[in-house]
């Protein structure tokens, strides 16, 4: 049975999820930090913009990304001029789309964790002689760890499961943009229910265990801090 399974979409999906998650966390930390500490009037605007992918139909997001990143779009023209070429229907295009699509899932838990921590531990550490990066490694990271793990798992799982955006901006190129969700769709289209079952069942189990791990983490964390 397993020999019928095409593993390429699975590896591609994992590759996409790992790449996007790493970039997402690096981008989201400063963004969440800024949102938690700023008094700027732009904050509601930026907040709304970051949350937008949560409520927007993926096809809408995919459509605008396609327009924007395509040969006629601003970003497309820019990437073309830089010699990168246009991003739609490439793996890089998928990464960019995934990052935007999963942004709220990374920013929100980090934002909550940073707000929860408050400024006081950092003030204490500063009065004890800890520099900015010292405070970041020894105070911020340990104290926002639960939020950070939630952000990592959620963005990873969310990227694994995306479909609409991928279809719009990536299409269905084997080894390049054909991820699991697209492969399932294709199997169903061609009545190959066995293969569809294997991929879909795998996704189901994966997603369930991710959420289960998050729950365990949460209770463990509560026990430590209370």
């Amino acid at each position: 049975m397993l020999e019928n399974l095409d593993f390429a979409p699975i590896w591609l999906t994992l590759h996409l999820a790992v790449t996007s998650t790493i970039i997402l966390i690096v981008l989201s930390l400063p963004l969440a930090w800024w949102l938690a500490n700023t008094q700027s009037r732009c904050k509601p605007w930026i907040s709304a913009l970051v949350t937008l992918p949560l409520v927007l139909p993926p096809s809408v997001l995919g459509f605008y990304l396609l327009v924007l990143l395509g040969p006629q779009g601003w970003v497309g023209k820019a990437t073309d001029w830089l010699g990168i070429g246009t991003l739609p229907f490439t793996f890089s295009g998928l990464v960019v789309a995934s990052i935007i699509y999963s942004l709220p899932f990374a920013v929100q838990p980090l934002y909550n964790a940073i707000q929860n921590m408050g400024k006081r531990p950092l003030e204490v550490a500063a009065t004890l002689g800890a520099s900015f990066w010292d405070r970041f490694w020894t105070i911020v990271l340990p104290l926002i760890r639960p939020g950070l793990l939630t952000a990592i798992t959620l963005s990873f799982a969310h990227t694994m499961g995306e479909f609409g955006v991928v279809l719009m901006i990536g299409g269905n190129i084997p080894g390049e943009t054909k991820v699991i969700s697209v492969a399932i769709y294709e199997h169903v289209e061609s009545q190959a229910y066995t293969q569809a079952h294997m991929l879909a069942g795998g996704m189901l189990l994966f997603s369930f265990f991710v959420l289960l791990i998050l729950q365990w983490q949460d209770t463990g964390q509560r026990r430590m801090l209370n």
């Binding site: 006081r120 531990p121 003030e123 204490v124 550490a125 500063a126 009065t127 004890l128 002689g129 800890a130 520099s131 010292d134 105070i139 340990p142 104290l143 430590m224 801090l225």
Partner: peptide
């Protein structure tokens, strides 16, 4: 702050919980 030779005790003890 971290380069001033001070110690600071806040109203709440504010120990590092971790």
């Amino acid at each position: 702050t971290h380069q001033r030779a001070i110690g600071y005790v806040f109203q709440e003890p504010s120990l590092f919980p971790h």
